[in-house]
Simulated scan of single mutants.
Amino acid sequence: MLLELQTISRRRAISLTPLIDVVFILLLFFMLSSSFVQTRQINLPVASAATGEPEQITQIELQDNQGIIRIDGQRYPSQQTAQLQALINQAPASAFVLSAKADVSTQALIELLDRLHQAGAEKVSLSGVLMP
């Protein structure tokens, strides 16, 4: 008498090498497509209605990308925080109107806004571009 034995089929093992390749490709894609630049926010308050008392306005002109500013006809480097703070302390309640020459970069303008804020200027406004 012959017995019919069923042949046991072996399960084939799934290779993990292609799966690891796909995971590394996805990891590379997400690392290269994301940005690691930190963004900061600068608060620029919107003009409000007049309170009846006229404010003193100080005009600040940004001359070039190196941060040279002109206040009342005198030139100052904006990198010297102590000197900038002394200018702001002369008129702490003053509104500072900032204008820039046409060839000044946006980065230089933002850096000057940040320095004015660090030096204690509370009221800062942006004006138009100065023509050469």
Rank of each mutant, 00 (worst) to 15 (best):
L2K: 10
L3Y: 09
E4D: 13
E4N: 08
L5R: 02
T7I: 04
S9H: 07
R10M: 00
R10Y: 05
R10Q: 09
R11Y: 07
R11T: 05
A13V: 13
I14M: 13
S15Y: 02
S15Q: 13
L16S: 08
T17F: 09
P18L: 06
L19E: 13
I20Q: 14
V22R: 11
V22G: 00
V22P: 01
V23G: 15
F24Q: 11
L26A: 15
L28W: 09
F29L: 05
F29H: 14
F29G: 12
F30S: 08
F30D: 06
M31K: 15
M31E: 08
L32W: 05
L32Y: 09
S33Y: 01
Q38C: 01
R40T: 00
R40Y: 02
Q41E: 12
Q41S: 08
Q41D: 08
Q41Y: 07
N43K: 05
L44D: 06
L44I: 12
P45A: 09
P45S: 07
V46N: 07
V46F: 01
V46P: 06
A49Y: 04
T51P: 00
T51H: 02
G52D: 03
E53T: 10
P54V: 03
E55H: 03
T58V: 08
T58M: 05
Q59L: 12
I60A: 02
I60H: 08
I60Q: 10
I60F: 11
I60C: 09
E61W: 00
L62S: 05
Q63C: 05
Q63Y: 07
Q63S: 11
D64T: 14
G67C: 04
I68H: 12
I69V: 03
R70E: 15
R70P: 15
I71G: 03
D72C: 05
G73P: 09
G73K: 11
Y76D: 00
Y76S: 04
S78R: 01
Q80F: 00
Q80I: 03
T81D: 06
T81A: 00
T81I: 03
A82Q: 10
Q83P: 01
A86V: 12
N89W: 13
N89Q: 11
Q90H: 11
S94C: 05
A95P: 00
F96L: 13
F96P: 12
V97N: 13
S99T: 00
S99Q: 08
K101T: 14
A102S: 01
A102H: 00
A102M: 04
S105Y: 06
S105W: 08
S105R: 06
T106Y: 09
Q107K: 06
A108H: 09
A108W: 10
L109F: 12
L109M: 10
E111H: 04
L112H: 09
R115C: 07
R115V: 11
L116W: 05
H117V: 12
A119S: 00
G120T: 01
G120C: 02
G120P: 04
A121N: 01
E122P: 06
K123Q: 13
K123F: 09
K123T: 15
V124L: 04
S125F: 14
L126T: 10
S127M: 12
S127E: 15
V129K: 15
L130A: 10
L130G: 13
M131I: 10
